[in-house]
């Protein structure tokens, strides 16, 4: 399960950020934005034509993130 597949308005928790060969810059930025293990995360909405996701990290940080980048944010399985 990753963030790109999460249904809008469903709360999930971050498991980890997937480490790929050349994405340490991105991981760094995502962590600074607050995407760290166990952090509650929620998709608020999605833009038109497959555009970015509007995501809430914790309760007070909101970001726009493309599907491409949302894919590497792995979530804990929700029951």
């Amino acid at each position: 399960m990753n963030l790109s597949k999460l249904k809008p308005r469903k709360l999930a928790f971050v498991k980890e950020i997937e480490k790929l060969s050349h994405n340490h810059h991105l991981i760094n930025r995502l962590e600074a934005i607050g995407i760290i293990p166990n952090k509650p995360i929620m998709v608020l909405r999605q833009a038109w034509f497959g555009g970015p996701l509007h995501v809430r990290v914790g309760s007070t940080t909101e970001i726009a993130i493309r599907h491409q980048e949302a894919k590497i944010i792995l979530l804990q399985s929700i029951e």
């Binding site: 991105l26 930025r29 970015p52 509007h54 909101e62 970001i63 493309r66 491409q68 980048e69």
Partner: peptide, 9 residues
């Protein structure tokens, strides 16, 4: 470039 952007209130 990845696209991640903060949306301030």
């Amino acid at each position: 470039e990845p696209f991640v952007l903060e949306l301030p209130p």
